[in-house]
Design a protein around this nucleic acid. Structure first.
Lengths: 333, 333
DNA sequence: CTGAAAGCGCTTACAG
DNA sequence: CTGAAAGCGCTTACAG
């Protein structure tokens, strides 16, 4: 465990000055033979670049803070994994914080990431504790992009990117009508939250146009809620022949309850989810869903935050990304 | 966007020397009134601790590197989320790297994390490129704990922690025998890999003791593989009345295929998974599985790496954590 | 308990 | 293209 070599050691070994070594590190133009000699010296003595020193001097850490409200939800996991890999490609490391829907934890984690000098924040915020969270973000004085959810929709300092939830709700409702559904319910999602409201209002506007009475059962966005609601629909709303779920987890819960209840998903009851997580392909029957195209969304997010951090290009306040319907057997398609 | 205040600014504002501010930051003993004055000054001028400077001076970053081969698998996600929250509780931030089973990516990410001065690595390695990965880890000269999978089982520099996979395989097989199964198959997991071999050998040893002929169908650890195998079992091995799956994803795939094939999961075919991910509770029927107790495992991992990093306590070379059977309806329990 | 000084390993102008 | 010097914001002995 001897001390890590420094650029001075490299310089000595390569017979150049330490500035030259630094220039090679920056990828600045240096005579090719010199560059190779320096690279060789680094390999020989096992040099490891010390980013803390570089950060201190240049005040740029190469670190991006990703703050996620629920990493156990596959939708966010897929986003986090894609985002992290995209940033790695651009030479940035991602520091991950799972806040588990806890505003207090969220605030502490934001502060911690700020201390580490993250160059930017991407946050899908927890609900609650808005003031404290905003204060922590503000104190960090760091470019911050909100994704999926917004703490503060109108704040120009906190641009917001999300899929076009409203359109998704519309597409789902229109699809079920096309498939011949007469009575369509909306299942799951906590009331009063923007994401729920948007997804639901796409559904409501379509039903309104057709003068169909909506059936709305809000609740947790979980498989177990979906399971419970499948039974409730059968008991209390037997006329319902189509459901749009707040997200895929709820929809997968509905599907998993159907065999037991003797309901034929895809004909007796047509089911549409939201998010198009990978599991949709492998459920029985495979789940029709609204795809938010997470890989592209993650790429767009990465490029926006990098553009902001590196070139000072502030993103638009609100950006909506396209969504589309993926037809599978659960809706009879 | 004015420059971040430093401890010097805080000192000036509080009317003390900058050493005093530093001592307050370290939590060293300082007169209470002074400490409060300093804290107040920090709040007043919006001071944010600069860890890069501290890291440079003290050579301890407060960063832990978590390298995961497949973040899309809920099993790893649950571990990552728990581990990250546990470390946050201890004042460490977690830098996450998803290597997506790509050894080349893995090597680059290890190097990148090393440059950021992570105090330790926790790695669930990708298969392949063992030499390069080991070289990168070695060059970092950083405490490294392998979890779940091992690149190099005998290396005392790379201790290894994993659930007791072999026992899990045994428990699953014994349970199915108790439930009256006569012919038990093992499904999924890539051949030749240590994790597959261990899980399978628990199963094989139980069958061997009872002189039952095993049926082994190895393959990807995915839902779609499980789905495909359910059909194959029906066609080619109709006598099979119990399956032990390499992991829950495979098992969930089997379950989702059953309704279509007219198989009654839990009676015609008893199914046991491995890992006990959260989805097991919400499948139809709920999935019997071998729990590796991820929250405890994550806590143990966190405590081992912190003990190593902070107090130099090298963990034992190999540590196996307990597993147990969770009985649910998929095995008829 | 508090203050003055040195130094961690880089980057960044600035000369040569 | 290369070298000598200053400095990023802390921590760490060391005196007082």
């Amino acid at each position: 465990m001897k001390a890590r070599p420094t650029i001075l050691d490299v310089a000595k070994h390569a017979g150049v000055s330490k500035s030259t070594v630094s220039l090679v590190l920056q990828g600045a133009s240096v005579k090719e033979s010199t560059r190779l000699a320096v690279k060789q010296a680094m390999a020989d003595i096992g040099y490891v670049y010390n980013r803390s020193a570089a950060t201190l001097r240049s005040s740029s850490s190469g670190l991006m803070g990703l703050v996620i409200n629920d990493l156990r939800n596959p939708f966010f996991t897929e986003f986090a994994a894609q985002f992290q890999m995209e940033l790695a490609r651009q030479g940035y490391a991602t520091v991950l914080a799972n806040t588990d829907e806890d505003p207090e934890l969220q605030m502490r984690m934001i502060s911690s990431l700020a201390e580490h000098g993250v160059s930017g924040f991407i946050i899908s915020p927890s609900y609650g504790g808005e003031q404290e969270t905003l204060a922590a973000l503000h104190a960090s004085n760091t470019p911050t992009l909100q994704v999926f959810r917004s703490l503060s929709p109108e704040d120009p300092k906190l641009p917001f990117m999300a899929p076009d939830y409203l359109l998704g709700g519309r597409l789902a409702a229109e699809h079920l009508l096309e498939m011949g559904c007469k009575r369509i319910a909306f299942l799951g999602g906590l009331e009063g939250r923007a994401v729920t409201e948007e997804r639901m209002s796409g559904y409501l506007s379509v039903l309104n146009e057709k003068e169909i009475t909506p059936v709305v059962l809000t609740g947790q966005a979980t498989r177990s809620f979906g399971k419970a609601m499948a039974a409730k629909l059968q008991d209390d709303y037997p006329e319902v022949d189509g459901v749009i779920c707040f997200n895929d987890l709820v929809a997968l819960g509905v599907l998993s309850a159907c065999p037991e209840l003797g309901i034929k998903a895809g004909s007796d009851l047509r089911v549409v989810g939201f998010d198009d997580i990978e599991d949709c392909q492998d459920s029985y029957p495979p789940l029709t869903s609204i795809s938010c195209n997470i890989p592209d969304f993650a790429k767009a997010t990465a490029s926006q935050i990098l553009g902001w951090v590196k070139e000072g290009k502030t993103p638009h306040i609100t950006e909506r990304s396209p969504v589309h319907l993926i037809k599978r057997a659960s809706s009879g398609a």
